[in-house]
Design a protein around this nucleic acid. Structure first.
Length: 568
RNA sequence: GCCCUCGUAGCUCAGGGGAGAGAGCAACCGCCUCCUAAGCGGUAGGUCGCAGGUUCGAAUCCUGCCGAGGGCACCA
C-alpha cells in the first residue's frame, strides 16, 4: 500500500533529521482536494512545538530529507497551507491498486485485524411471543452486516439468537393463544395481536378440538420460532445457534451463577429477595437476582447465558441491543466482572447499542399498541419491498441516530431507493463484460495489459476509491459501523456511473479496451464485495426503466399509493 | 433528578481534530444516431442548536445550557 510506503519514508526522513515520530503516530491520509495532491501528512504541524520551529520550517526540513530518498510513485512533494506536506503521485500508484484488486478478487479489502477473535454475535433475540416487529429489521440488517465485517477482518463469527423461552412472557403468550383458541378475548395483560387468531386456527387444524393448555404452549412456541426463522430467511439472515433459555435452567447453570456470586460475597438479602451488590461494582444501583417468589430475574439468567457462551469457546462476546435496554449494560458487564470475566483472556461482553426505529405511515407516527394489537411486522415490509431495499434502508445511517422508517415512503419510493443506484452500477459493469464477450473481445491476462493507457480522470477516480476501500472496511469493522460501507459504495457507484458515461470500454483501440475491461472488472469486485458485506445482492442485469413507460411495477396489493406517472 | 444517544442545506442523512463543510431527495436548467437514461452534467440552497473552554488548527474533543428520542421494576 502506498500509504505504508509514505509512512515508512517519512519515518526514515524524521530519523535522518533527528526528529521523533509523534506519539500519536504518523498520519498520512488522502487529500480531500485534488489540488492538494494525492496524499498529505500533518507531521510538521504536530512536531512544530517540540522541534521549536514554525510548522512550515519543520516541513521544509522533512521534505529535504524525503527528497534525498524519494519513495516510489512520488512525483512531487510540496509544503502548503499551515504546514501540510502534500504528495503528488504519478498515476502508477493507482495501477498498483488495480493490480491488488484484481489479484485479491472477492477478498480485496479484507484484512486480518481480528484473525485471533472467536466472536459470538448475538442479535435480534426478540421474544418468541409473536412475529418480528418491523423496527427489529434494523438489528437484523445491522447485526448481519457487522458479522460480515468482522469476518472480513479474519474473525471467526458465530451468529446467535437467544430465545427467552423460560419467562413469564411465554406463559402470557400461551394463555393468550389458548383464549383465542377458545374464541375468547386474551387476558387483560395478554397479547392482543390478531396474529394469534390465525395461529389459533392453525393450531386447531393441526391438533384438533381438544388441545390442552400445555399442548398449546408447546405448539405456540414452536410455531412462533418457525415463523421467526422464516421471516429471517426471507431477508436472508441465518443464525448458527438458536439458544434456548430453558437449557440454562435445566442444566443448573442459573444456580451455578448464583453460587459463584454468593461465594464472591456479592449478594445479600433484603425484602425477601436476593440482591446483587452491583452499585459497589460500578452499577447505578443494586439489582435483584432472585425475586421474593423464588424465581430468578432476567439479569441472573442472562449472566448464566453469557457464561455459557464463554464456556462454548467464544472469546469475544458481542450483543446488539436496542437503546431501550441501555440501563442493563452496566449491570451485565459489572456482574460478569464479578464472575471473573474482564481479563485479557475473557473480556467482558461488548454491548452495541442502537437507537430505536420510529415507524411512520405517511408522516404519522404509528404507535404500537399491544392492547389494540397494532403491529407492523418485518414480513409486512417484505410483502411490499424486496429484501435488498429493506436491508439497505436500515443500513443507510449510523446506528447512533434514531431511524424513521416511513412505510409509505419506503414502499412508494422503493424504486428510488439508493440500493438500485448501486445495483444498477453493478449491472452495467456486468453488461459491459457480457457485451465484450458476445462481441468476441477476449480479455488478455492481466499481466499482459498496459494499465498506463488509463489516464482519464474518471478511470483514476475509480481506482482512488478502490484504494480507500480496505481502510473503509477496517474502520467500519472497528467502529461496528456498517453504514460506512454503505456510504462508500454509494460514492463508488456514483464514480462507476460517471465512468460509464464518459469512457467507452469497447472501442477499436485494443490496448485501451483491454485495460478498461480489467478496470471494469475491478469495479465489479468493489461493488460486489461491499454489497456482500451489507448482505445486499449484486444483480448482473437489471431492466431499463424508461420514464415514458409510466407505471410498471404495479405490485397489485391494492396499494393506495400507486406510482405516479412521474413525468409531464 | 440521574444515565445513554442525537441536534449539519427545505427534507433524510454522511463527515467525528486539519486546508473554501458533502451526498441523496425536493426545485430549476441541460444531455440518449454510441457498452442498459434505475444514468450523467450544471444552478440554487449552510451563524454545522447556543455559549464558553482546550489546541498551531474545532462541525469534530471538554463543560454548561436549550431541544428531540430512549432508559432509570422483585418486565424481558
Amino acid at each position: 500500500m502506498i500509504a505504508d510506503d509514505l509512512v515508512a519514508a517519512l519515518d526514515a526522513a524524521l530519523h535522518t533529521i533527528g526528529l521523533e515520530v509523534p506519539s500519536s503516530g504518523l498520519e498520512v491520509v488522502p487529500t480531500k482536494n485534488r489540488e492538494h495532491g494525492d496524499w498529505q501528512t500533518n507531521v510538521a504541524m504536530v512536531l512544530a512545538k517540540s522541534a521549536g520551529a514554525a510548522p512550515r520550517e519543520v516541513a521544509g526540513r522533512i521534505v529535504a530529507a524525503l527528497e534525498a530518498a524519494a519513495p516510489a510513485h512520488v512525483a512531487r512533494t510540496e509544503i502548503a497551507g499551515p504546514g501540510f506536506i502534500n504528495f503528488h503521485l504519478a498515476s502508477t500508484w493507482l495501477y498498483d491498486v488495480l493490480g491488488a484488486v484484481i489479484g485479491d478478487g472477492a477478498a480485496y479489502g479484507h484484512g486480518d485485524a481480528y484473525a485471533d477473535l472467536a466472536v459470538n454475535l448475538e442479535f435480534v433475540s426478540a421474544n418468541p411471543t409473536g412475529p418480528l416487529h418491523a423496527g427489529g429489521g434494523r438489528w437484523v440488517a445491522v447485526g448481519d452486516a457487522i458479522a460480515n465485517l468482522l469476518a472480513a477482518q479474519g474473525a471467526r463469527v458465530h451468529r446467535e439468537y437467544y430465545l427467552n423461552d423460560a419467562g413469564h412472557q411465554l406463559d402470557i403468550f400461551a394463555a393468550s393463544l389458548m383464549a383465542r383458541y377458545r374464541g375468547e378475548q386474551p387476558p387483560e395483560d395478554g397479547y392482543q395481536g390478531a396474529y394469534l387468531i390465525d395461529m389459533a386456527d392453525a393450531m386447531r387444524a393441526d391438533l384438533g378440538d381438544d388441545v390442552s393448555a400445555e399442548q398449546a404452549a408447546d405448539w405456540g412456541y414452536h410455531a412462533v420460532v418457525a415463523e421467526l426463522r422464516d421471516d429471517l430467511a426471507r431477508i436472508g439472515v441465518h443464525f448458527d445457534t438458536w439458544f434456548s433459555e430453558r437449557t440454562l435452567h435445566e442444566r443448573g447453570d442459573v444456580t451455578d451463577v448464583l453460587t459463584a456470586l454468593r461465594e464472591g460475597g456479592h449478594t445479600y438479602e433484603r425484602d425477601g429477595a436476593e440482591w446483587l451488590a452491583s452499585e459497589a461494582l460500578g452499577d447505578q444501583r443494586d439489582r435483584v437476582l432472585v425475586r421474593s417468589n423464588g424465581t430468578t430475574t432476567y439479569l441472573t439468567n442472562d449472566l448464566a447465558y453469557h457464561r455459557d457462551k464463554l464456556a462454548r469457546g467464544w472469546t469475544h462476546l458481542i450483543d446488539i441491543w436496542g437503546a431501550d435496554h441501555h440501563g442493563q449494560v452496566k449491570s451485565l458487564q459489572v456482574a460478569m466482572r464479578a464472575l471473573g470475566v474482564g481479563t485479557e483472556a475473557a473480556p467482558e461482553p461488548e454491548i452495541i447499542l442502537g437507537q430505536l426505529v420510529k415507524l411512520e405511515r405517511g408522516g404519522v407516527v404509528v404507535r404500537l399498541s399491544k392492547r389494540a394489537g397494532t403491529v407492523i411486522t418485518l414480513s409486512d415490509i417484505l410483502d411490499e419491498v424486496d429484501p435488498d431495499v429493506a436491508r439497505l434502508t436500515f443500513l443507510l445511517q449510523g446506528i447512533d441516530t434514531a431511524l424513521t422508517f416511513d412505510l409509505d415512503v419506503v414502499t412508494a419510493q422503493s424504486m428510488e431507493n439508493p440500493v438500485y443506484y448501486v445495483q444498477y452500477a453493478h449491472a452495467r459493469v456486468c453488461s459491459i463484460a457480457r457485451r465484450a464477450a458476445d462481441g468476441g473481445v477476449v480479455r488478455p491476462q492481466f499481466a499482459d495489459i498496459d494499465p498506463s493507457v488509463l489516464v482519464h480522470e474518471r478511470e483514476l477516480d475509480l481506482l482512488r476509491a478502490l484504494a480507500e476501500y480496505p481502510e473503509t472496511l477496517r474502520h467500519a469493522a472497528a467502529l461496528r459501523a456498517p453504514h460506512r460501507v454503505t456510504t462508500w459504495v454509494r460514492d463508488f457507484a456514483s464514480r462507476v456511473h460517471g465512468f460509464y458515461r464518459d469512457c467507452r470500454v469497447i472501442t477499436d483501440d485494443p490496448a485501451l479496451t483491454h485495460a478498461r475491461l480489467w478496470l471494469v472488472e475491478s469495479a465489479r469486485i468493489g461493488l460486489a464485495g461491499s454489497l456482500a458485506i451489507l448482505g445486499v445482492s449484486a444483480p448482473e442485469a437489471m431492466e431499463r426503466l424508461d420514464v415514458d413507460e409510466d407505471g410498471g411495477e404495479a405490485d397489485g396489493d391494492g396499494g393506495e399509493a400507486g406510482f405516479e406517472p412521474a413525468g409531464e
